[in-house]
Amino acid sequence: TYYTVKSGDTLNKIAAQYGVSVANLRSWSGISGDLIFVGQKLIVKKG
């Protein structure tokens, strides 16, 4: 599943919304830090 980052989103908010960890969200999407951008597509795998 892809999630497109919206204004005001954080990795914590997105992870909580999908019931996954921030570490997994980073790993799946190839992100090393906490910086995400509006319009960026993140990969989300539901448990």
Rank of each mutant, 00 (worst) to 15 (best):
I14P: 00
Q17R: 12
I14E: 00
I36M: 04
G8A: 04
I43T: 10
S27V: 13
G19N: 12
W28M: 08
Q40T: 06
Q17H: 11
Q40N: 04
I31N: 03
A23V: 10
G47C: 11
Y2R: 07
K46W: 15
W28I: 05
L25W: 02
Y2L: 10
R26I: 14
G30S: 09
V44G: 01
G47N: 13
G33R: 05
I36A: 03
L42R: 00
S21D: 08
V22M: 08
Q40E: 06
V44I: 15
S7A: 15
S27P: 01
G47P: 15
A23M: 09
T1F: 15
D34F: 09
T1E: 15
K46F: 14
V22S: 06
N24F: 07
I36Y: 03
S7E: 15
K6V: 11
V22K: 07
Q17D: 11
S27F: 12
V22N: 03
G39P: 00
I31E: 03
K45W: 13
G33K: 06
V44M: 07
D34A: 08
S27T: 12
K45P: 09
I43H: 08
S32D: 13
S27D: 15
A23Q: 13
T10A: 04
G33S: 11
D9Y: 02
V20K: 01
I43A: 08
L25V: 10
T1S: 12
S21P: 07
L42H: 02
A16T: 11
V22H: 03
G19L: 07
Y2M: 11
V20Q: 06
K6I: 09
K6R: 11
K6A: 09
G30R: 07
R26T: 10
N12C: 12
S29V: 05
G8C: 04
K41R: 13
K6M: 10
W28L: 06
G47S: 13
G8D: 06
I31P: 01
S27H: 14
Y2G: 06
L42M: 07
Q40R: 03
Y2P: 07
G39I: 06
W28T: 05
S32H: 12
N12E: 15
Y18M: 10
S27Y: 12
W28H: 04
A16C: 11
I14L: 07
F37K: 09
Y18K: 04
S29I: 05
I14V: 08
S29Q: 06
Y2A: 08
T4D: 05
N24S: 11
T10D: 08
N24V: 12
K46E: 13
T10S: 09
L42V: 08
Y18N: 07
S21Q: 06
S7G: 09
F37H: 12
I14T: 00
F37W: 11
V38Q: 08
K13P: 00
V38L: 08
R26D: 02
D9A: 02
G33Q: 08
K6H: 07
I14H: 00
Y2Q: 09
I43W: 12
G8W: 04
D34E: 10
W28G: 03
V38K: 07
G30H: 10
S21V: 04
Y3A: 03
D34C: 09
S21T: 14
D9L: 02
G8E: 05
L11I: 09
D9C: 05
N12T: 15
A23I: 10
T1V: 15
L11Q: 01
Y18G: 01
A16R: 11
N12K: 14
L42K: 01
S32V: 14
R26A: 09
K6P: 01
A16M: 12
I31R: 00
S32K: 13
G8R: 03
Q17T: 12
Q17I: 13
I31F: 09
G39A: 03
W28C: 05
F37C: 15
G47D: 14
D9N: 02
L11G: 00
S7C: 13
S27W: 10
F37I: 10
V5L: 03
V44T: 06
Q40H: 03
Q40I: 06
V44S: 02
G39Y: 04
A23D: 15
N12A: 15
L25P: 00
K45V: 11
A23K: 10
G33E: 08
Q40P: 02
T10M: 03
A15W: 05
V20C: 10
K46Q: 14
G19D: 09
S32Q: 13
Q40W: 06
V20G: 01
Y2I: 14
K41E: 10
N12W: 13
G30W: 05
N24Y: 07
Q17M: 15
Q17V: 12
T1C: 15
I36P: 03
V5F: 03
G30K: 09
K45E: 10
V22E: 09
G30I: 05
V22L: 09
V5C: 06
R26Q: 13
N12S: 15
Y3M: 04
A15G: 06
L11M: 07
R26K: 15
K6W: 03
T10N: 07
Y18C: 07
V44Q: 01
S32M: 11
Y2V: 14
K46M: 15
G47R: 10
A16G: 09
V44R: 01
Y3V: 08
S32F: 11
I43M: 11
N12Q: 15
G33I: 07
K41P: 05
S27L: 15
I36R: 00
K45I: 11
R26S: 08
L35M: 13
Q40Y: 03
G8T: 05
L25F: 03
Y3K: 01
V20F: 04
N24T: 13
L35W: 11
G33T: 10
D9W: 03
Q17E: 13
I14A: 00
T1M: 14
G47V: 13
L25N: 01
S7W: 12
K13Y: 10
K45G: 12
S29A: 08
K45H: 14
T4Y: 14
Y18Q: 07
G19M: 08
S29K: 02
N24K: 10
T4Q: 08
V44W: 04
V38Y: 04
A23L: 08
I31C: 05
D34M: 09
T4H: 08
K13M: 12
S29Y: 03
D34P: 07
G8Q: 05
A16Q: 13
N24L: 13
S21N: 06
G47Y: 12
I31M: 09
L11H: 02
T4K: 07
D34Q: 07
K45T: 10
S27A: 15
V22C: 08
G19F: 07
L35K: 14
K6L: 08
V5H: 02
D34S: 09
A16S: 11
G47Q: 13
S27C: 12
S7R: 12
G19P: 00
A16N: 11
S27K: 14
Y3T: 03
T4S: 07
K6Y: 04
K45Q: 13
